[in-house]
């Protein structure tokens, strides 16, 4: 068998020979990033809302106590996750579940859990900030017509929070794509893991990592472009039409 002699020759050779592995790695990376971001955002929105709950002095004592306990749990979760590296969290979850409870979870599932929990912690802080950033008049306007706290959050506050957070969600997704690479430590077969395996055969580190760099770049660049478009569309119409009345005028 004849081997290529130039850099581009090797790149071409590796792509041709291993394109299936690259694509499989890319697929796993995308899956992890998408599911992790979606679950992480859901978790983040829930935790962020819990942490922003006001304690209504007029509500019952058990409810006030319950809210306080929830808030403490939420605060501990956020602080612990933010203060430890993603890679370490992955190791702790993957090996911890095995040695403590004897549960052998699939590394892919462990990967999704770690991604979600990690993204959730960061997202919850953004959500909390965004809720706090909404003009208090929005809440008062709802209260003045007798809407409950839940109704105001659902119909008034959260739609505005969500719209303001779309760029943030985009950012999160983009960094999630790149963060998946650390999950190779628990043997999740994502793109970086695929590259590492491929280098094991021909020892062509530079060429292989250049290939996955290009893949990561194309991926994240495309995603951020798509998100830009989405953001523009969600901004809504800038103009409105007057509704003509048939009779009243004149």
């Amino acid at each position: 068998m004849e081997f290529p002699t130039t850099f581009f020759g090797w790149v071409f050779f590796l792509v041709q020979r291993y394109y299936k592995d690259f694509l499989r790695g890319l697929g796993v990376t995308l899956e992890l990033a998408v599911i992790g971001t979606v679950l992480g955002c859901i978790l983040g929105f829930i935790v962020g809302m819990i942490r922003s709950l006001p304690i209504d002095k007029g509500s019952s004592k058990p409810w006030q106590f319950f809210v306080r306990v929830l808030q403490i749990i939420a605060a501990v979760y956020v602080e612990v996750i933010r203060a430890t590296p993603l890679m370490v969290q992955a190791m702790v979850l993957y090996y911890g579940t095995m040695s403590i409870w004897g549960i052998d979870i699939w590394s892919f599932h462990a990967g999704i859990m770690v991604m979600s929990v990690h993204i959730g912690a960061y997202m919850s802080e953004s959500v909390r900030g965004a809720i706090g950033g909404i003009d208090p008049g929005q809440m008062e306007g709802g209260q003045a017509i007798g809407m409950s706290y839940g109704q105001i959050m659902f119909h008034v506050i959260m739609p505005q929070v969500f719209r303001n957070l779309i760029p943030q969600i985009g950012n999160t997704f983009v960094s999630a794509i790149k963060d998946t690479s650390v999950l190779n430590v628990i043997a999740v077969t994502e793109l970086y893991f695929a590259a590492r395996t491929i280098t094991g055969t021909y020892y062509k580190f530079f060429e292989t990592y250049i290939i996955i760099s290009v893949i990561y770049f194309v991926l994240t660049f495309t995603v951020s472009r798509i998100l830009k478009l989405l953001e523009k569309r969600l901004k809504g119409p800038e103009n409105y039409e007057l509704v003509k009345e048939e009779t009243e005028e004149a």
């Binding site: 003009d135 008049g137 929005q138 008062e140 306007g141 709802g142 003045a144 119909h155 008034v156 739609p159 505005q160 719209r163």
Partner: peptide, 8 residues
């Protein structure tokens, strides 16, 4: 300050 719902 009116306090109309900005998203509606």
């Amino acid at each position: 300050s009116f306090n109309l719902f900005a998203n509606m």
